[in-house]
Simulated scan of single mutants.
Amino acid sequence: MTSRNWVKLFISTLLIGGITTGIVGFIVRWDEFAPFFIDFNIVEILAILFWLIGVGFIFSLLSQAGFFAYLTVHRFGLGVFKSNKLWNAVQLILIAVVLFDLVYLRYEVFAAENESLLPYIGLALVVFIAGLIVAYLKSKQTNKMAFIPALFFMIVVTVIEWVPVLRVNEESWVYLMLFPLLICNAYQLLMLPRLNERSLKERENIQKAPNSKPKRTQKKPSNA
């Protein structure tokens, strides 16, 4: 990828993270922010919006760090296991372990006495279904072999990025961080092939440019 397209991906992902967090923040914390809208307190609304966008920028940076870390891990995994099928099998096992831990460990640590397991399963299902949708789109965009790596990234890497808030287990923050991470991760995953293709075309155009310039012909001196 060219530096220009990398900067485009960085800035666009940053903006998506900020805007998504701003929207999700007002939804999940509506009870807290509703009085400002009722009183039409523009100053407070804008202050909260800018704060949420700033938090979204942080979520976006975590997402981008996780994305580029996964690209390295994916190449490393292919090098170690020497086979796409074997590496995909390992990734499927890790996906299952992470989803199980997301339900079981959180329930064991945070559940109150006689609390239902369903909310914990529901949260894991949100991550799983989002991962399936993005992985399906990725496989359609590239090839079938991309499905499991995309699913791994959307589930395992998202949960790893999500860990700081999961440890606190404050419900509004759990959702506030989850949806921007999912959207930023999906965006990067689906945009990468397009930007790589664009970068390749740009390099080809640069290489062709010197050869495409017409050669200047020197005029013969006139005998007149």
Rank of each mutant, 00 (worst) to 15 (best):
74 H>P: 03
153 F>Y: 15
42 I>D: 09
14 L>P: 04
164 P>I: 05
78 L>D: 00
190 L>T: 01
137 L>C: 06
161 E>Y: 02
126 V>G: 03
6 W>Q: 08
209 A>T: 05
147 F>E: 09
212 S>D: 14
53 I>Y: 13
186 A>T: 06
147 F>K: 05
146 A>V: 05
122 G>D: 08
175 Y>L: 06
49 L>K: 06
76 F>A: 02
27 I>D: 00
175 Y>K: 00
39 D>W: 10
161 E>G: 10
150 A>C: 07
116 S>T: 06
104 Y>K: 10
110 F>G: 01
145 M>G: 05
56 G>W: 15
191 M>K: 12
152 F>L: 11
221 P>D: 10
14 L>S: 10
175 Y>W: 14
175 Y>E: 01
95 I>Q: 10
146 A>W: 10
3 S>W: 15
184 C>L: 08
129 I>T: 04
186 A>W: 11
209 A>S: 11
223 N>I: 11
42 I>M: 12
7 V>G: 00
180 P>Y: 11
214 P>N: 09
1 M>R: 06
71 L>T: 06
88 N>D: 13
216 R>S: 07
110 F>V: 01
58 I>S: 05
12 S>G: 00
17 G>E: 11
180 P>G: 03
77 G>A: 11
11 I>L: 15
220 K>E: 15
99 L>E: 12
88 N>Q: 14
40 F>I: 04
160 I>V: 14
49 L>R: 06
151 L>R: 03
1 M>F: 09
194 R>K: 13
130 A>H: 09
167 R>Y: 12
155 I>Y: 09
215 K>T: 06
133 I>G: 00
94 L>M: 13
91 Q>T: 02
63 S>L: 08
148 I>P: 07
62 L>N: 06
102 L>P: 04
62 L>I: 13
3 S>Y: 14
181 L>Y: 10
83 S>R: 09
106 R>Q: 13
125 L>K: 02
59 F>H: 07
57 F>H: 01
61 L>W: 10
204 E>V: 01
59 F>C: 02
21 T>V: 03
136 Y>R: 08
147 F>V: 04
104 Y>V: 11
118 L>E: 07
74 H>Y: 15
90 V>H: 05
171 E>N: 06
163 V>L: 15
176 L>K: 03
119 P>S: 01
200 L>F: 14
20 T>N: 05
28 V>Y: 04
158 T>M: 13
64 Q>W: 14
171 E>T: 07
163 V>M: 14
203 R>F: 14
167 R>K: 08
12 S>C: 01
28 V>W: 06
94 L>A: 09
30 W>K: 01
155 I>G: 08
